[in-house]
Design a protein around this nucleic acid. Sequence first.
DNA 1: CTCCTGTCCTGCCGGC
DNA 2: TGCCGGCAGGACAGGA
Length: 281
Amino acid sequence: MPELPEVETVRVALDRAMTGDVIGAVQLNRTGLRNPFAPDLAARMAGRTVTGVGRRGKYILVHLDRGDVFVLHLGMSGRVLLVPAGGDHADDRHDHIDISFQSGLRVIYNDARRFGMAFMLDEAGLKSYPAFATMGPEPLGNAFSGPVLAAALQGRKTTIKNALMDQRIVAGLGNIYVCEALYDAGISPLRMAATIRKTEAEALSNAIRAVLTRALAAGGSTLRDYRHANGDLGYFQQQLKVYGREGAPCPDCVCTVEQTGGIRRISQAGRSTFYCPQRQK
DNA sequence: CTCCTGTCCTGCCGGC
DNA sequence: TGCCGGCAGGACAGGA
């Protein structure tokens, strides 16, 4: 799925396109995604004005009038297509939600694997929804820092890789940016989280911010199944240093492929981890 | 509690 | 070329 930079890119596009517009009809093309749609989902959205589009972690929050929030999570393969008034759109079998606005804008949620989520919450529900109630700080916000990260890692009986994938430690990271941040910080993904020293947590928090900021500037990274809300591809994947580069030379250190076999790929918690065993200790 | 494994679903890529 | 196994950026349930 899209991680924080990709989700943020979609959020910005949606905010620009939808804010101030009024939802007309909402067409649901199936009974649900990861979870069944609430029976009143479409009816509850119709006629509402979008007051702004926010984000928490990897969740997009479409704020509506009267305090309701339409929550959208892109899962692994979710895309949002914006079809301007009068624009064409060829139907796709994976178009699951089709929102028409009074302006003529259409916002289509397309998700081949259907791991995404779409549901409504009110203000109270937003606070109590489990994923939000336990979610860690936004890595690009003021609440995130080396000391905050160090504290969150204390007592964790898992590897730093798995800890950073945990949205309760820090919000918005996924497999790609965890691998990249650990590489930039020179920390092995195999290290136990609780052994990360303060100086390392500082370096790691800085690396997380830096890589997310660079990806955001590039408009979000893209693998084969992600597109921007506006249909443009992102290019940050060309800047990835370790993710998906098994066997390639480590770009930032003097080790050679002959010595180390290049960037290594291992499996942690059922997911691929890419790292340089020479540079990351 | 915390941690780990398996699972949801389709598409795509590489190997044979 | 065609088929098939493996793998994919996430989240969560359920079991240890």
